[in-house]
Design a protein around this nucleic acid. Structure first.
Lengths: 131, 131
DNA sequence: TTATATATTTAGGCGTGCCTAGCATAGGGT
DNA sequence: ACCCTATGCTAGGCACGCCTAAATATATAA
């Protein structure tokens, strides 16, 4: 029974960073939007943002702009890429898109880098053999 | 951002049930063995067992035998089967066995039934085309 | 400008899982 | 019987993530 190290970023923290990343593509992320997207109350978002900013993953002063630091951006991009890859993969093997999205969200934080690599390679082989 | 329903069995509860199930194959599960397997202290196991027994998943009286109820057995078997399937699948696509085991453990609780079905089907097709 | 609506923040609290420290109980060995 | 060790249990406490209710800030309308 291996368990993820407690000291690093939690799955939930990665969710928050990813959500900020995605919302940043389309404008300035708001507390309210983050709350909706993450299915939590706005107050939970504020609290989480405070912690993430203490740890240097986001820039956030109350009332101010919400923005990822370089460190936060790195994590967010990694998770987001995993999300995309996993969703593609699951739909490829026949999982309906909506379910694939949900499951990708859930496991994107947990897989070993090695595993994600193998999945990427698997998809690459498929793309080559099926034009 | 879909999240698992809070009212049902947590991932961790499923881990406990699965561990009890596996240890039951080889004898009577002990608190100590469960603790080792789940990487927690014995006191955490005792506490968890109390809750699981209140909820009708295990039979457990302090000092007594630890045993799954029918209800607990059903969950444990389902999770264990998922574990096996996912491990097979991951090794098939090239993930080293030890990593496959770990990742299977982590995601076995989270995937939609539909997704697991698709993975099983995928493996079945492979087995047919590659004797 | 004042009133109202919306967005954000603070305060206080809760459930889950985990821990350590200390107590209890059971078995062996001498 | 006694001591010693292993095992199990109880008590108390902690971190994480979440919530509601109430306070404050900001934007919009009258």
């Amino acid at each position: 029974m291996e368990r993820p190290p407690r000291s690093l970023l939690s799955s939930r923290a990665e969710d928050y960073l990813e959500a900020i990343y995605i919302l940043s593509q389309k404008g300035k992320p708001k507390v309210r939007e983050l709350a909706r997207r993450l299915c939590v109350s706005p107050s939970s978002v504020v609290e989480f943002l405070r912690r993430l900013s203490e740890q240097g993953y986001v820039i956030y002063k109350k009332g101010g702009e919400i923005r990822l630091t370089e460190k936060g951006l790195e994590v967010a991009r990694k998770i987001y890429n995993r999300h995309v890859v996993l969703t593609e993969f699951l739909t490829y093997i026949g999982v309906p898109r909506d379910i694939a999205e949900i499951d990708a969200c859930r496991i994107e934080h947990l897989l070993h880098d090695e595993t994600v690599e193998r999945i990427i390679e698997f998809m690459r082989r498929k793309m080559e053999s099926e034009p």
